[in-house]
């Protein structure tokens, strides 16, 4: 029994995690969201330049429930949420597990700005449910959760923290490196931070800004320098869907990455996609914040290495 201490070690974290998930359900049910379940084994993973799926027989394990949830949205389910396991090949690090828990929700009629507010409300409601006040301690810093949270555009973040401007970083293919080394460490340190208006090149199914077609209406939430959620105003234009997917396919082909089929069902259903915003939030990452740990291993019972 005593040699099971590795399993008992994370007990407090697993309790917090379970209460978080309870609080998430309470929040969405009280706001008239419908909890849905979509398939984990799918024929056509989401077209993304940098997300690889894990094959499962003739199918793939889903990398996120996005496509199926959007089909529900298009079919007339205006407010839906899901908490599910997602699977991504080759992702393992202090913030990554190849099998992780995602909270995803969509709301018809919202845009990314309104979604930031709802995201704030959700996390504050979880915090209160866990019995914390408006301040939480993370990695020797105090995170103040009083609304409104900090917002900064990606362009301004480059101006503040990076050696070169955003447009140059995109042009020079240095965007990701600078994001990781110069910008992320400054985000969500005193307050949670929404960083918004990303280059459209990295946001496959996000709506572009009308006045700035190179910029997508997309944001990320950071707490303690860690990316917690990714959200956007959803792309609704049918033709643009085809163009974006084609672009991703070309990129993946040129990079010698595995190619995935495109779902005809999705392309068919998306014709009725209403104006909406959607967001994916990493439940494990949020649990890391509430457990004051910088390693994702501390908030799950089992890791792949100790499977």
């Amino acid at each position: 029994m005593r040699d099971n201490w590795r399993l008992t070690k994370n007990q407090a974290a697993l309790h917090i995690r379970a209460r978080m998930i309870c609080a998430i359900r309470d929040f969405f049910i009280s706001k008239d969201y419908l909890e849905v379940e979509t398939p984990s084994m799918i024929t056509a993973p989401i077209p993304e330049p940098h997300i690889d799926a894990i094959p499962c027989g003739d199918l793939f394990l889903h990398t996120s429930p996005e496509l199926y949830m959007k089909r529900l949205l298009a079919a007339g389910y205006p407010k839906i949420f899901q908490i599910c396991k997602c699977f991504r090949a080759g992702e393992r690090g202090a913030f990554h597990l190849p099998e992780f828990t995602m909270l995803e929700w969509y709301c018809q009629g919202m845009d990314y700005r309104l979604l930031m507010k709802e995201c704030e409300n959700l996390i504050i409601s979880i915090v209160h449910n866990l019995g914390y006040g408006n301040e939480i301690h993370y990695q020797n810093k105090t995170l103040n959760l009083k609304k409104p949270w900090e917002t900064i555009s990606v362009r301004d973040a480059f101006t503040c923290f990076a050696p070169i401007q955003m447009d140059e970083a995109v042009k020079e293919d240095l965007f990701d490196e600078i994001m990781v080394s110069h910008i992320e460490p400054h985000l969500g340190i005193e307050q949670p931070t929404f960083i918004y208006d990303y280059p459209v090149s990295g946001a496959t199914l996000a709506k572009a800004k009308e006045e700035e077609p190179d910029i997508a209406e997309r944001f990320e939430l950071y707490m303690g320098g860690i990316e917690i959620a990714n959200a956007c105003s959803e792309l609704t234009d049918m033709k643009e869907h085809h163009t974006r997917i084609e672009k991703v396919q070309q990129y993946r082909y040129s990079m010698n990455k595995p190619m995935y089929p495109v779902s005809d069902y999705f392309l068919h259903d998306i014709a009725h996609m209403p104006e909406a915003a959607g967001i994916a939030l990493g439940v494990d990452r949020l649990a890391m914040i509430f457990n004051n740990t910088s390693v994702i291993d501390d908030v799950v019972a089992f890791t792949p290495e100790r499977g």
């Binding site: 690090g93 202090a94 990554h96 990701d176 490196e177 994001m179 990781v180 990714n230």
Partner: peptide
Amino acid sequence: FNFVKPGKGQALYR
């Protein structure tokens, strides 16, 4: 060694 991946970006190995 650290595996990182900024939102929707590529995998980086710091």
